[in-house]
């Protein structure tokens, strides 16, 4: 439980002359859920894209399971922020989920079974033949999550996954993710600007400063499991953690 799956070391990224990320170092242990928070404009998404192998760092390195990331690694799945742009509108829900599996070499039937299981796990039974745009925003993001889970990644990387849905749906999706962590035995790295969300979901929180981003603090979240939207958020510990993160994020933006 305590061995390190992801280690990010001295990550630095320049966009032209603009220094976005300046020597960020942190680790994610196997089975853990780590959130990366920070004010908007901090290099959260940049760091995440480097971890996912979608972007080259200027210097520093990312290793996942001891292997250095040089391109998108085989056991990493990504859930992107904008479901309406990251699902393929010309494929059915099933087609969207099976596409990466088929690309990975699974047989048609194996891909289909895995996809239907993942769709059931996110509560989308019976939607396999529909097209993404026939579903609500929250359901579309569930499809994107099912696509990621069906891929059976060691690491699931999520970039503001709930930023584009309404508040109620957002809570539903948060509560969907928590049990799925166990069910799919997956390590999760989540980028969010929502501090409540980070505290509620995470085991640890990495707080980044505004650009050029550095790690301000790594905070352990010692709230009991299982968590609940009402009980957990009423705990004094929740309020304390929320306060701590908020102070860090705000002190640096003012």
């Amino acid at each position: 439980m305590s061995d390190t799956l992801v280690s990010v070391e001295h990550l630095t990224k320049f966009y032209g002359d603009h220094l976005a990320v300046d020597g960020v170092t942190f680790g994610v242990r196997t089975g853990e859920m780590v959130s990366i928070v920070g004010p908007s404009g901090a290099g959260k998404t940049t760091a995440l894209r480097i971890v996912a192998g979608l972007l080259e760092p200027t210097s520093g390195s990312v290793t996942i399971g001891g292997v250095r990331v040089t391109g998108p690694p085989p056991d990493v799945a990504v859930v992107f922020q904008d479901y309406s742009r990251s699902l393929l509108p010309w494929l059915t829900v099933l087609g969207n989920v099976t596409l990466p599996l088929r690309a990975k070499g699974l047989s048609r039937t194996a891909a289909r079974t895995a996809a239907l299981d993942a769709l059931a796990a996110v509560g989308l039974d019976g939607t396999a033949r529909r097209r993404p745009r026939e579903l609500s925003g929250g359901m579309q993001q569930r499809v994107a999550i099912a696509r990621a889970l069906a891929y059976r990644p060691k690491l699931l990387v999520m970039d503001e996954p709930f930023a584009s849905v309404d508040a109620q749906t957002r809570m539903d999706l948060e509560d969907l993710i928590l049990p799925l962590r166990q069910e799919y035995a997956v390590t999760i790295m989540l980028v969010t600007h929502d501090i409540d969300e980070a505290v509620y979901l995470s085991d640890r929180i990495v707080v980044l400063s505004p650009a050029p981003s550095t790690v301000l603090r790594v905070i352990d979240v010692d709230l009991p499991l299982p968590r609940s939207q009402t009980a957990t958020k009423e705990l004094p510990g929740f309020a304390r953690l929320r306060h701590e993160v908020l102070d860090l994020v705000r002190a640096r933006t003012d």
Binding site: L54, S86, W90, A103
Partner: peptide, 25 residues
């Protein structure tokens, strides 16, 4: 859309599938 290109890369979709299932549509 850059987001679709990202999906193709992140899930390591091969060149043929990328062309016929992603880029051309």
């Amino acid at each position: 859309d850059a987001a679709l290109i990202d999906v193709g890369r992140a899930y390591r979709i091969g060149p043929l599938r990328r062309l016929f299932l992603l880029l051309l549509p």
